[in-house]
């Protein structure tokens, strides 16, 4: 059988590189992944927060950020996000 890779091992390989985080609601984040834990709470650096509203998309820059894993839906490694 081919060697398995666990989902969280894939995310572990992304540490140090850019990642695009899509939340359950209309929010997205991009940043450099510094670390994460078993709940997929994530520490990001050089973060941009995107919020999609009926009026359009707003962007906000953040310093080092701990993102609560509770609302995370999808992670896309190596992506600069929606732009």
């Amino acid at each position: 059988m081919a060697s398995q890779i666990l989902p969280l091992e894939l995310i572990d390989k992304c540490i140090g590189s850019r990642i695009w985080v899509i939340m359950k609601n209309d929010r997205e984040f991009t940043g450099t992944l510094l670390g994460f834990d078993d709940f997929v709470n994530m520490v990001l650096e050089d973060v941009t927060e995107y919020e999609t509203t009926p009026q359009g998309r707003t962007k906000k820059s953040l310093e080092q950020t701990l993102l609560n894993g509770n609302n995370i839906c999808m992670l896309i490694p190596g992506s600069e996000g929606p732009d």
């Binding site: 140090g16 510094l34 670390g35 994460f36 834990d37 520490v43 919020e51 080092q64 701990l66």
Partner: peptide, 25 residues
């Protein structure tokens, strides 16, 4: 090589100015 875990972040940020955003915005 990486010490950027959530626990390490929290240790480093206590006593500093922070922005806490709630799910409500």
């Amino acid at each position: 090589t990486h010490t950027g875990s959530p626990t390490d972040f929290l240790k480093g940020v206590v006593g500093k100015r922070v922005i806490v955003r709630l799910v409500s915005g």
